[in-house]
Amino acid sequence: MIGLGLLKAMRVTLRNALKAPFTIQYPDRKVGIVGAAKEEGKSPIGLVATQPVTAAKAAMSMYSVPVNIPQNRRFRGNEFTWYEDRCTGCASCAKYCPLGIIEIVTSPGGFDVQEGESYAIDVFDIDIGRCMFCGLCVEACPYDALHMGSHFERSKYERDALVIPVDELRQALKEPSSWFRPQFEERDYDPFRDGAEDDHYKVGRHEKPSDETLDERWVEER
C-alpha cells in the first residue's frame, strides 16, 4: 500500500534524528560555557567571574577541547619503537619488509664475553612515506627490538621529512603497540593508559629459552 512504507521509514528517521550523533569530532570539538568551565576545572559562574575572556569565547563557541579517540592496543601506529640495546643489526626486518624501505648499516662493535661479538648500528632509517604499516618487520624481529608505535599523527610538509632516521628512533617516545607481542597483552600492558610503561624491561620480552631447551636445540638435535 502506498504510504505505509513511507511512514515506517519516517519513523526510523525520526528515531535516529533524536539520538545523539555517532560521529566523533576530531581533533577537537567546540564546547559552550559549561564545557569550558569543566575543562578549566571551575564552575560556570567561577569561569565567568575569573576568566571573562575565556567565558565570552566559549559563549561564542570559539572554545574547543581536544578529543581523544579510543584506540586499541594492537593499533599499528606510524612511529616505530626501537630498542637499540636489543637490536643486533641482523636486518631480518629489512629483508622481511615487502617494500624494502628499512635501511640498515652496521659496523663491527665491541666484544662481550657473555654476549659475543656485537655490531654497532650506524644507520637504521625507515622511510615511512612508503610504509604501509603491515607490521611484517615487527613480526620478523627475533629479538623484540622493533615494535609498531601507537600514534598516527605524523603529517609533514615534505616527503624527505617522512624518513625516520636512527637518531629520531633512539629518542622517540617508547609507547609500543602490542601488535605481534603477545607477552604485552599477557601482562596487561596498554600504551594508551596514562603514564604508559616507559621502561620496556618491565613490559617484558619473549621468554628467554632455558639452558635445557638450548642444550636440546644445539646439542641433541645435531
Partner: peptide, 12 residues
C-alpha cells in the same frame, strides 16, 4: 578488526 589485528581496512 582494529582490536583483532591493529588495522581497519588493510588487515593482513
Amino acid at each position: 578488526f582494529e582490536m583483532l589485528c591493529g588495522a581497519r581496512i588493510t588487515n593482513s
